[in-house]
């Protein structure tokens, strides 16, 4: 089928302001949006810039706005969009660099702020083997281990758009992953960080994050569980 791909363009060395380029492409209904971008680069304009790597939704490189909604270009197919007009734009709320590439550093800085690593200074089991964890304890935080840090959630969040210092859903998801891990011992420290001004209380439960997540993580629920833990002084 023939479709129109409208691509946000900005070259920082040449352009004063962004513009859109329009490409007419011959595509299959099952093509990924990423395939369309690859087609543009191979056949129309090799200078188009965007990040991508795994091309099947696990590396988190190619989150962007597709027809106005955040998603991974490699996980949204042409037929999912139900339209022959497709517009791709960079994520909102992060500094624009070039075309579809934004500066991810502010996003990763928020991730790093929640101590996103296991903390447990107790002695390891004497036999040197694994720490034990029941299947139920493991299930408690399974959902939030799926995060690929693509930023689709955080950059869809109205609270984040209004306040770029808000830690945002992705950082909270990654705090959740450790707070509810029975092996971890830094839950209280993380909860303290999340209780501060830029923490979970800025979440207004808009559910944009949950809708945007390409990994189907129940993000709003994870945030609510953190809020509950703070209110009940328990983890």
């Amino acid at each position: 089928m023939e479709l129109q791909l409208k691509v946000f363009r900005f070259h920082p060395e040449k352009d004063l302001r962004p513009h859109y380029d329009l490409f007419s492409l011959e595509a299959e209904a099952t093509d990924r949006v990423l395939d369309l971008l690859e087609m543009v680069r191979a056949e129309h304009d090799p200078t188009l810039a965007y990040r991508r790597s795994c091309a099947h939704g696990v590396c988190g490189s190619d989150a962007m706005r597709i027809n106005g909604k955040n998603g991974l270009a490699c996980k949204i197919l042409v037929h999912d969009l139900r339209s022959r007009q497709i517009t791709v734009e960079p994520l909102l709320g992060l500094p624009l660099i070039k075309d579809l590439i934004v500066d991810m550093e502010p996003f990763f800085a928020h991730y790093r702020a929640v101590l996103p690593y296991l903390v447990n200074d107790e002695p390891l089991p004497e036999d040197g083997r694994e720490r034990l964890q029941s299947p139920a304890e493991r299930d408690r935080f399974d959902d939030t281990t799926k995060c690929i840090l693509c930023a689709a959630c955080t950059t869809s969040c109205p609270s984040f758009w209004a306040n770029r210092l808000y830690l945002g859903p992705a950082a909270i998801v990654n705090a959740h992953r450790f707070i509810f891990d029975s092996r971890d011992r830094a839950g209280a420290r993380r909860l303290k960080i999340l209780a501060e001004r830029q923490g979970v209380w800025l979440c207004r439960t808009a559910f944009n994050c949950t809708e945007a997540c390409p990994r189907d993580i129940h993000i709003t629920q994870a945030i609510a569980e953190i809020k509950n833990a703070l209110l009940n002084h328990s983890i």
């Binding site: 690593y117 296991l118 447990n120 390891l124 040197g128 083997r129 694994e130 720490r131 034990l132 964890q133 029941s134 299947p135 304890e137 493991r138 935080f141 399974d142 281990t145 992953r177 450790f178 891990d181 092996r183 971890d184």
Partner: peptide, 22 residues
């Protein structure tokens, strides 16, 4: 064998058997 235990000690969330092992 040690490398897998190292990963677990680093925090890797392995799926678990009913007795809590990897």
């Amino acid at each position: 064998v040690q490398a897998v235990y190292d990963l677990e000690h680093y925090g890797l969330p392995f799926s678990r058997s009913t007795d809590g092992r990897i």
